[in-house]
Structures are given as C-alpha cells and as structure tokens.
C-alpha cells in the first residue's frame, strides 16, 4: 500500500548568489572577520521553504496542492520524491514513486527519438531489456511516426513534450507526484493529454498534484491541501479548501 508520512518536516533552502558561491570571498570574509566583503549582502541566506509540516497521506488519496507561488508546493513534492532531504523532521515513503516535474529532463537533443525513449526509459528505472521491448509500443503511442528516427533537436517543442510524456506515462507507479508549476506542461498541454493521463493517474495508488489550474485539480483530486509560507493552512475536501482559498484571494489584503 502506498503511503507518505511527514513528521515535523522543515526544509531550509540556501540562497546562493554569485558571491557566496565563491570560496575566495568566503575565506576573505572569514580571515578578515567580515571586514572585507567584496559585495554587499554576501552573507549566507536561507529560506525556510517548509516549516514544521506533518502530513499523513494514505493509499487512495488524490491530493491537490494549492497555494501562492513560493508557498512550498514544489519543495514539498521534491521532499516526497526523496530529492530534497529535509533539514529537520522525518519522511517515510512507502511504494514506488514517479515524479513528473520537468517533462523535458533527461533528453538528448542530438539523439534520435528512439534513442531518447531508451535513455529516458532507463532514467525512469526500466532495465535496458524492458525498455527495448516496450520502445516500439511507446514510439507508436507518440504518433510521431518517421520523426522518431530524426534527432530530437529537429522536433518542435510540442513534439518533444509528446515524446517525453509518452515515456513517462508508460510506467505504473504506486505514488505519482506531478508539478504543473515547473513546466510539466502547461495546463493546456495536460488537457490535451487528458485521456492518457486519466488512466495513468487512475492506476496510481496515491496522487499528489501541484497546480494553479482549478479545473485540473477538480478533475483529478478529491482532497485539497492549502499551503502558505511552507505551512499547512488547511486540508480537507477539495471543494471546501478551494472555496476558502478563493475567498482569501478576493478578500482585501491585510
């Protein structure tokens, strides 16, 4: 059974600018007691992206993450995916995880469509044999035809998204994490691929989606999780949470 448990999780993300990325500047600042600071504001800044968050997500849940930009939606997805290890607290994830954050990742522009299916498939966890067996079927489902033997750089943006998407949705993960915010295709694309997504999402035991598209969330999710400044503002049935969120948006600031 798929499950995700977060216990008092906090995540601090270091903000590294050009100057704090320089060893020379750091050494110089240290040995001179901070007297020499080549540029102002070179001290290390961290942003608390997730603040003491506890969550208990169980099998069958369809969670929609709601919140402003910078509310911690993407960060929490990365924590669930095991990419960001939290600064405090503990995370327990049971089940195979598939993360769809940036749909274009792991593609080689100079390789052909077929080669990219193999490459991406292996990055997603297929063995060489498995992906070679399935590449035919995946290739067909892209509907790209002869283009598959051409290098990826000759593709239009839409075509390469279709290819990436076909490979990504060929797996059947127990836990599916989707971030619409960082280019997992804009809402329009996701609408376009609706059919494919419906069955893909339907098979997942646990779904977490971050999106600004209300329509999309209503279609896929049943539970809403409203994030604000890295904290959980509200969790409950999607409709209620969305209404509360919209009310707060229309309410005058202050």
């Amino acid at each position: 059974m798929a499950a995700i448990t977060l216990q008092n999780v906090s995540v601090d993300i270091p903000i590294l600018d050009v100057s704090s990325r320089s060893l020379k500047n750091n050494v110089l600042a240290a040995v001179t007691g901070g007297q020499i600071k080549p540029t102002a504001g070179s001290k290390k800044v961290t942003i608390r992206a997730i603040d003491n968050l506890s969550l208990d997500l169980t099998h069958g849940m369809r969670i929609g993450l709601i919140g402003h930009n910078g509310a911690g939606k993407s960060t929490i997805l990365r924590v669930m995916a095991g990419i960001y290890e939290p600064t405090a607290g503990s995370v327990k994830v049971e089940g195979d995880v598939a993360a769809m954050f940036d749909i274009g990742f792991g593609m080689d522009p100079d390789a052909s469509g077929w080669e990219n299916i193999i490459l991406r498939g292996m990055l997603l966890g297929y063995s060489r044999k498995e992906i070679e067996l399935r590449s035919e079927e995946i290739g067909l489902s892209t509907g790209l035809g002869d283009f598959l033997s051409m290098p990826l750089r000759t593709y239009s943006a839409g075509m390469s998204t279709r290819l990436a998407f076909a490979v990504s949705t060929s797996i059947t993960p127990e836990i599916l994490l989707i971030d619409e915010g960082i280019g997992a295709g804009d809402a329009a694309f996701l609408q376009h691929a609706k059919e494919r997504l419906r069955s893909f999402i339907g098979e997942a035991g646990l779904l977490v989606v971050a999106s600004h598209s209300e329509e999309l969330l209503r279609q896929w999710c049943t539970t809403g999780l409203w994030m604000e400044h890295g904290r959980q503002r509200a969790i409950g049935p999607l409709d209620e949470v969305l209404t509360a969120y919209n009310d707060s948006l229309s309410a005058p600031a202050g």
């Binding site: 405090a88 607290g89 049971e94």
Partner: peptide, 8 residues
C-alpha cells in the same frame, strides 16, 4: 519500496 529519511 520504503524510503525513510530522518534529518536527525
């Protein structure tokens, strides 16, 4: 199958 991360 089970991923456990404990910051402490």
């Amino acid at each position: 199958r089970v991923l456990t991360i404990n910051a402490a």
